[in-house]
Simulated scan of single mutants.
Amino acid sequence: METIDKLKQYVEQQLGDDTTGHDYTHIQRVVALAKTISEQTENDDLLIVLTAAYLHDVIDDKLVDDTYDKQKEVQSKLVQLDYTSAQIDEVMDIITHMSYSANLKHHYELTINGQIVQDADRLDAIGAIGVARAMYFGGHFGDTIYDPEQMPRNDMDKSQYREHTTVINHFYEKLFKLPDLMNTPAAKEMADRRSQYMHDFVREFKDEWQGIH
């Protein structure tokens, strides 16, 4: 699709230099996962799914200083690419409400298109790649890998969640919770295997930390 090709170029320009684990390769994996989930899901609109999958991190407040201006820029880009007002509204609704932090205190009901993209993004946060991205993200911000005296936090709002924690605590505070939050049957099935890998990793990590083996 020519429209998607042009959108890809824009997103790669925006995220190509990212060093937090939200770079263009992350976007490519989310898009691939979204396609896989879409193939097994009814009543979705693939153009909306792909568009939101490509754009979901461009306006992320972890990555940009002024999310309002960035949202306006994204909307203008979609107008240039001849998306309809309804399509733009749905894409913006998805990418502004799909993040984990945006749903900490209130679960936002996304369209089926948004649920697919949310699942794809969350799948890329878990499993072997999830472990690597957690370490990469923590290293970027100078977070401690592990502190046995620092317990994982619960019942956080967004501002509390944004306060840095240890990398291992991040598994308990977010990553271990994601499999139960998947929307679609296809994503739930993929999440089970990835979740097991993460649990095995953290168990092995703590055993090695204590010198058990």
Rank of each mutant, 00 (worst) to 15 (best):
E12W: 12
V91C: 10
V49F: 05
E208S: 12
E149Y: 15
L46S: 04
E189R: 05
R203P: 01
F205H: 04
D147G: 09
V117A: 08
R29S: 06
K8Y: 00
Y161Q: 06
V49K: 03
Y146N: 05
D69C: 07
A125M: 12
Q14P: 04
R203A: 12
T25N: 12
D155E: 13
I88F: 09
N154R: 09
A186V: 14
D180G: 09
S159A: 13
A187R: 00
P179L: 03
Y54H: 15
Y197Q: 09
M182G: 01
A128V: 14
V49N: 03
T144S: 03
T166M: 05
F201H: 03
L78E: 07
D121R: 04
D69R: 12
Q80W: 08
Q160T: 06
G21R: 01
A120E: 06
R29N: 05
L123S: 02
D155R: 11
D18N: 15
Q80V: 13
A132L: 13
L55Q: 14
N113G: 11
F176D: 05
N183H: 10
E109V: 09
E90Y: 11
K206H: 08
L178W: 06
I27F: 01
H56E: 04
H56C: 06
I4S: 02
D121S: 10
T144Q: 07
V74K: 03
Q210L: 14
D65E: 13
R203K: 14
L46R: 09
I95R: 05
T67Y: 11
Y172W: 15
Q80C: 09
G130W: 01
V49D: 02
I126W: 05
A125L: 13
S85Y: 13
A125H: 12
I37H: 01
V58E: 05
V31F: 07
S99H: 09
L55M: 14
G142T: 03
G130Y: 02
T3G: 02
H106L: 14
M92V: 15
P148S: 00
H56A: 07
Y108L: 07
G138V: 00
L33E: 10
E73F: 00
K174R: 12
R153H: 07
H140Q: 07
Q210H: 15
A102L: 10
N103W: 09
Y83K: 15
A191N: 01
K177H: 09
F171H: 07
R29K: 10
M135C: 08
E90I: 07
I4M: 08
A191I: 03
F137R: 12
G138N: 00
T3Q: 08
L81S: 02
G130F: 01
D69E: 14
K6D: 03
H140G: 01
L33A: 07
Y24N: 00
I48Y: 06
R153K: 13
V31E: 04
D5M: 07
T111M: 08
Y10A: 00
K174N: 06
I95C: 07
